[in-house]
């Protein structure tokens, strides 16, 4: 079975390329603002949040705007890619009813095209760092590691969502509500230090996204290496989620067509 899966992947590899390039074309060509928006959106959020937070809450974080922007880059990727993945099967319905195509291709391609957007957002991050005279360190190059971990995490989450949303369409709405709340369960826009309740702080520390953010910011801004807990609590849940996602998707995929 494993071998036939690989053979099948080989056969449909061109499809993966075509699907990703389709997404990119649609995003960046249809609107000239496409690229600009990917860069502007986190920049605007950064500006607003840093004005609001540093004036109202007055907490001291070194390079706070860049701190927020790092959070935005990773969190926006997670939010965009998992939502795109969630709809990937539903949107391909007319096709899946007619042609045999490995269904995971549609979900995988969505995550991949969103991954490419990370680099546009990363460009924005670099510009802000240069403008704000944040010192650049060589650890910057290591920031690809938390990005890769995040991609694995998003892929697993995306597979689960794609598989269950086919049958239960209201998951789509529930998930967007979830995302609105989830941003506060990880220090995306605030520093962990403002959480005074130790239980709550501990819960937030168990969130894999918290640990990916810590690694990412350490590499990009603070020139620090993550501790073992941080690494393990980012890597292990991501791999578990991916395995779970593949399993759920594999189990459910034969019945997709019944609900499309």
């Amino acid at each position: 079975m494993f071998q036939s899966t690989i053979a099948n992947f080989r056969k449909f590899k061109p499809l993966l390329y075509e699907l990703v390039s389709r997404d990119i074309k649609n995003k960046y060509r249809r609107s000239v603002l496409g690229v600009l928006w990917t860069i502007l959106n986190p920049l605007l959020m950064m500006t607003i949040l840093s004005i609001v937070f540093s004036n109202i809450f007055r907490f001291e974080v070194q390079y706070y705007p860049v701190y927020i922007l790092c959070g935005q880059v990773l969190y926006n990727f997670f939010s965009d890619s998992t939502q795109a993945a969630m709809n990937s099967i539903i949107y391909s319905a007319p096709l899946l009813k007619k042609v045999y195509v490995p269904k995971y291709m549609f979900t995988l391609s969505r995550i991949m095209s969103c991954s490419i957007n990370i680099f546009a957002a990363f460009a924005a991050l670099l510009i802000v760092m240069v403008v704000m005279r944040v010192p650049l360190h060589f650890t910057m190059f290591l920031s690809i590691i938390p990005i890769l971990i995040m991609i694995v995490f998003a892929l697993g989450t995306g597979f689960i969502l794609a598989a269950v949303s086919v049958k239960y369409r209201d998951i789509v709405h529930l998930y967007s509500v979830f995302l609105t709340g989830f941003i506060y369960l990880a220090p995306v826009i605030y520093p962990l230090s403002i959480i005074s309740n130790p239980t709550l702080q501990f819960i937030i520390k168990l969130n894999p996204v918290t640990n990916m953010l810590a690694m990412f910011r350490g590499f990009v801004i603070y020139n620090t290496m993550p501790d073992l807990f941080t690494v393990l609590m980012a890597v292990i849940p991501s791999i578990v989620i991916l395995a779970l996602g593949l399993w759920v998707f594999y189990r459910k995929q034969d019945e997709f067509i019944l609900f499309l």
């Binding site: 499809l15 389709r22 096709l95 042609v99």
Partner: peptide
């Protein structure tokens, strides 16, 4: 033109 390549890939044909 682009759809020809996309559709071909759906049928399992490389570029």
């Amino acid at each position: 033109r682009e759809n020809i390549f996309l559709n071909g890939a759906l049928l399992g044909h490389p570029r």
